[in-house]
């Protein structure tokens, strides 16, 4: 919604401006920072799920041939 408001060229004169004083200056940056936040959250979760001792775990995964 913040992004929509900012796309209206004359929004400076409206009351809305006071409601969103901390809105990021540009939508692309806001999106990028939200995406980064999403990735950070995701990596935090995956950190907790990954097997410990990556090197040993990966080395031990040895398969016999298949089709």
């Amino acid at each position: 919604m913040a992004g929509q408001e900012q796309q209206q060229p004359q929004s400076r004169d409206t009351e809305v401006e006071e409601d969103i004083p901390e809105a990021p200056p540009a939508a692309p940056d806001a999106q990028a920072s939200a995406a980064t936040q999403g990735v950070d959250d995701l990596l935090d979760e995956i950190d907790g799920v990954l097997e410990s001792n990556a090197e040993e775990f990966v080395r031990a995964f040895v398969q016999k041939g298949g089709q």
Partner: peptide, 26 residues
């Protein structure tokens, strides 16, 4: 090795360990 582990564990079929399933849940 950690990237190798991500590649391998992507395909773990257990939903709590498999990274594909973590993506699906999100």
């Amino acid at each position: 090795a950690r990237l190798g582990l991500v590649d391998l564990q992507w395909a773990d079929i257990r939903p709590e360990k498999g990274l594909y399933y973590r993506f699906l849940a999100r």
